[in-house]
Design a protein around this nucleic acid. Sequence first.
DNA 1: AAAATATTTAATCAATTATTTAAATATTTT
DNA 2: AAAATATTTAAATAATTGATTAAATATTTT
Lengths: 216, 216
Amino acid sequence: MHHLCAMEKMKMGKGISTEEKIKKAARKIFRQKGYASTRTRDIAEEAGINLALLNYYFRSKEKLFEMVMAEGLNQLFSLVRAIMTEENTTLPQKIDALAAAYIDMLLENPNLPIFVLGEIQANPEKLEAKLGVNRKMITESGAFHQLHAQLQKTGMNDVNPFHIILNMLSMTLFPFIGKPMIQRLTEMDDHAFRNFVNERKILIPMWIKNMLQIRE
Amino acid sequence: MHHLCAMEKMKMGKGISTEEKIKKAARKIFRQKGYASTRTRDIAEEAGINLALLNYYFRSKEKLFEMVMAEGLNQLFSLVRAIMTEENTTLPQKIDALAAAYIDMLLENPNLPIFVLGEIQANPEKLEAKLGVNRKMITESGAFHQLHAQLQKTGMNDVNPFHIILNMLSMTLFPFIGKPMIQRLTEMDDHAFRNFVNERKILIPMWIKNMLQIRE
DNA sequence: AAAATATTTAATCAATTATTTAAATATTTT
DNA sequence: AAAATATTTAAATAATTGATTAAATATTTT
């Protein structure tokens, strides 16, 4: 259907290819509004192209969405997996790395968490398959074993290690999930919010290490 | 339009009134699917009544939604406000009370947080007005002053008190926001999830107090 | 230049869905 | 029983919106 010769030249030359423009626009609108309240017309407008062209490149709204969602899930998980399964780092090093890398990624993709979690909420069965891949990621990671060992060591045998992982994710992700509400309640503008969240790159690892009684 | 004589009798007698059935159904579907992917037909079906009757009681989908959202926002905020502005409790007492009460409420209303935050995300300007009411709730609460004092006392002058409040909300709300994903990743069924979250009624206050160097 | 491909335009189709209407039936109130 | 009210049924309306089509124009490739 699509012959790439022209588009390749586009990429090198003036700007990004049309396909990339559409994907970028779809990403923006889908993440902001969610699947159901996104209209393909809005995506076309955002991309600065014609509605007909959108259906010429991607056969349907559904296909376009699946691409955006797959990409989003990957973006959300790959970082965690990479750091948690890293073999040559200590637990506190992993905690430091995860907070910093995750917050940086989320500052670039603030709507990603609520988008992904919202769609899973509205349509769990449809996304079941794509989650299956990540099912054993946590319990089979080096981080999980290190966490378990640390909890044993400090006599907190009865604490489910998943509480700690969840705390890490909660404190990192929630500020972005609640961003619109938080900014309105605290009267933070975008710049203040960015600073506030950046402070958490240092603070979250500190709090998590305290939970684990790690003193460095 | 509605004469209450018949409905009042309904309430006393067999079951709940039709208006209440519709509200209950709307609450369930809207919270589960969000505004955009909810069809009024689904609400009518869930309520066990006719679609025409839904428009006879509430003039539109929009009106019905506004009611559900107003109720939801109130449910989400009133608890926090009540506990944070309580005059005769210490900071650690407020922390204990908030975790327990909030988790109990959320176990009864697991979809509430993602519903409210998702709708605010998709339509910030529409809900701006209803958030305004709660704007000064935090900074003018007794809890905020106690928190500020405690941070001064322990020499953490540079830590924005809002970090602590956000941590409290993050660790409490996020498990429910991520519930569908968490349950699939960890293979927890509903019963296991309930137990897991119940453990956090004790754990979260412990972690928060550690952050504040409160030893009891 | 000729052929192939990309993009636009405008119009239309078809399905979904919120909303309305009117008439029929049931239930409650007086 | 009569009147008022609640509920159902069935149909129709109107707006939205995803998707398609075909013809025209622009751009790129050969």
